[in-house]
């Protein structure tokens, strides 16, 4: 197979295991490309991409922008804070105005869950979801699985512990879908108030004791505590959270096996993970960032190949 089964990347839920395989295979080639002296290929030189960020982002935005530039696409960047959205323009109007300037693809981050799906039903363009509220963040999950595969050889059969703010995390949901699809075993861990009530229905285990979870897993994925989504106080204090669910070197050394530690960023050092773990050999956080560019190049390339030429 050399074509994706979808026209947009809205979430992991909409794609298949074969799509993931194709994305990873293409990523291998792009990883090779970005390590050459000239890191650019001309594939997308007649494609224009709009990066619409209705919510703040550093890593994802830069990663997409770099991926687009390395594919020679023309890009326009848009951030809600400095736009007419502030003047009351609707999402469809904003996007249609941008599309009338002959844009072929949209990369969008939005605070509302389902924003990407909504947009895909109302406009005629390829859409990549770069995070929609607490719903999905498919490119992050794909780069996480790719990084696990790179480090451990395969995702199938691996035990992955996702720790932290599961209830607000789009990274957790996309990862649960992606890891399950590839045959990994997934367990979520965190205070009961940060774990959705019926999460077991997604085929994951729940563990409230971090040490037990770490002893079980091959990969620990530490999530950021999302201050911006904590309207109600779901745990007493950051200090208490760090004591019970923060990963520190002492705890990591106390378990009797080698595990790899991941974090989607941005890191709250000293809260969900301490500096000595971030900077240790267990952490593959910077590999995740490098792989992010190659994964996004692969997704952009594969989706662009489905755009019909005018």
């Amino acid at each position: 197979m050399s074509e994706l089964s979808v026209d947009h990347l809205l979430g992991i839920k909409q794609i298949t295991k074969e799509d993931i395989e194709l994305i990873f295979k293409t990523t291998d080639h792009f990883k090779d490309v970005i390590n050459r002296p000239i890191k650019k290929v001309p594939s997308l030189r007649d494609i224009t991409i709009a990066n619409l960020f209705f919510e703040n982002s550093t890593r994802t935005r830069i990663s997409f922008e770099l991926a687009e530039k390395r594919l020679s696409a023309d890009i326009i960047n848009f951030s809600a804070s400095s736009s007419s959205v502030k003047k009351g323009e609707t999402l469809i109007d904003t996007v249609n105005n941008i599309l009338s300037m002959k844009v072929d693809m949209i990369v969008m981050r939005h605070p509302e869950p389902g924003a990407a799906v909504f947009l895909s039903k109302h406009i005629n363009s390829r859409i990549i979801n770069a995070g929609d509220g607490t719903h999905e963040h498919p490119t992050q999950a794909l780069l996480d699985s790719y990084s696990i595969r790179e480090k451990l050889g395969d995702v199938k059969g691996k035990k992955v512990l996702i720790v932290g703010d599961i209830i607000h995390s789009r990274v957790a949901l996309s990862n649960i879908y992606a890891l399950n699809m590839q045959g990994a075993k997934v367990c979520v861990c965190g205070p009961p108030t940060l774990i959705p009530k019926h999460i077991k229905e997604l085929g994951v285990e729940v563990e409230y004791d971090l040490k037990k979870g770490l002893e079980w897993c091959d990969v620990a994925m530490m999530l950021r505590i999302q201050m911006e989504r904590q309207n109600e106080r779901l745990f007493p204090s950051l200090r208490e959270y760090a004591m019970l669910y923060g990963l520190n070197k002492e705890l990591l050394d106390s378990i009797k096996k080698e595990i790899i530690v991941m974090h989607p960023g941005p890191i709250n050092r000293g809260v969900e993970i301490t500096s000595d773990v971030v900077d240790s050999k267990h952490a593959i956080i910077l590999d995740q960032v490098e792989n992010g560019v190659a994964i996004r190049m692969a997704i952009l390339y594969l989706l662009a190949s489905k755009i019909e030429r005018a």
Binding site: S2, E3, K25, T26, H29, D32, V33, V41, P42, S43, Y301, L302, A304, S305, I307, E308, R309
Partner: peptide, 22 residues
């Protein structure tokens, strides 16, 4: 040397070409 990403028939073929190893 794989030339897939440098070809001038990208999006002009019915079935996209899969890349190979460089």
């Amino acid at each position: 040397l794989d030339i897939t990403f440098y070809r001038d028939d990208f999006r002009r073929r019915d079935i996209p070409i899969a890349a190979n190893k460089t």
